[in-house]
């Protein structure tokens, strides 16, 4: 089953994957300011390199974050609209799950906390207890938003768990999490961006006086 995977929750990453063949093509850029510019070219390059037609895909994997708003949205919009255009299902995956899966696959065992930058001196985190029998990370609870100091507080539930700070998300790993989840009939994430923050808006208290 060939999938196109797109993630812009950190930098921009696009991949074409297959359960048996693994990551067939992947493009990544860590710059967090160029999502809208490069996501389109990356999709095209990956499909060409993998020699895959949109019609030959089984679905489009979208990384739902958590991630800072502006960038995260570009990838989700691209994944949703590509899926619509190609007439394929959208497969939502939580981006942190891809990071955790990569670490377990590279040999990590036991508990793990994945941490990514949420800007404004805050971080996103997800806690995983272990990898299950098929290697998928077992997330305990939803991703969260916190100040870094909160995670260092010994009273925090996962304070003693090993922690990895990730600056990038691999769409290849995101796609393979989707492949495994599908192959083993695991549920996908909800098709909703994980902003984990309200839009910043302050209600004004009416017009300010102009005359003294």
């Amino acid at each position: 089953m060939v999938l196109l995977a797109i993630d812009t929750s950190a930098g921009t990453s696009v991949a074409v994957v297959d359960l048996d063949r693994g990551v067939i093509a992947e493009r990544g850029e860590a710059d967090t300011m160029r999502h809208a510019e490069i996501v389109g070219p990356f999709i095209l390059e990956c499909l060409r390199e993998a020699n895959v037609d949109p019609a030959a895909l089984s679905g489009v994997v979208g990384g739902m974050g958590p991630g800072p708003f502006t960038g995260l949205r570009v990838g989700i919009a691209s994944a949703r609209v590509f899926a619509l255009g190609a007439g394929k299902p959208l497969v939502p995956v939580i981006s942190h799950d891809a990071i955790a899966w990569g670490h377990y696959r590279r040999g990590h065992t036991g508990p793990l906390v994945v941490v990514t930058d949420a800007r404004r001196r805050e971080i996103y985190w997800s806690a995983y207890s272990e990898a299950d029998a098929i290697g998928l990370p077992v997330r305990v609870g939803s991703p969260g938003l916190a100040k870094p100091a909160e995670l260092d507080d010994p009273a925090w539930l996962h304070a003693l768990w090993p922690r990895i700070d990730a600056a990038t998300v691999s769409a290849g790993e995101l796609g393979l999490v989707a492949e495994l989840s599908y192959a083993h009939r695991r549920p996908f994430a909800a098709n909703e961006p994980l902003y984990l923050r309200s839009p910043d808006v302050t209600l004004s208290n009416g017009p300010k006086r102009v005359s003294r």
Binding site: G40, I43, P54, F69, R73, V74, V81
Partner: peptide
Amino acid sequence: LSGALMVGVGAAKALAVALD
């Protein structure tokens, strides 16, 4: 508005590539 524009730009490119 740049954040608003980016949603449309990302989506339009994806649609163009999906449809060739």
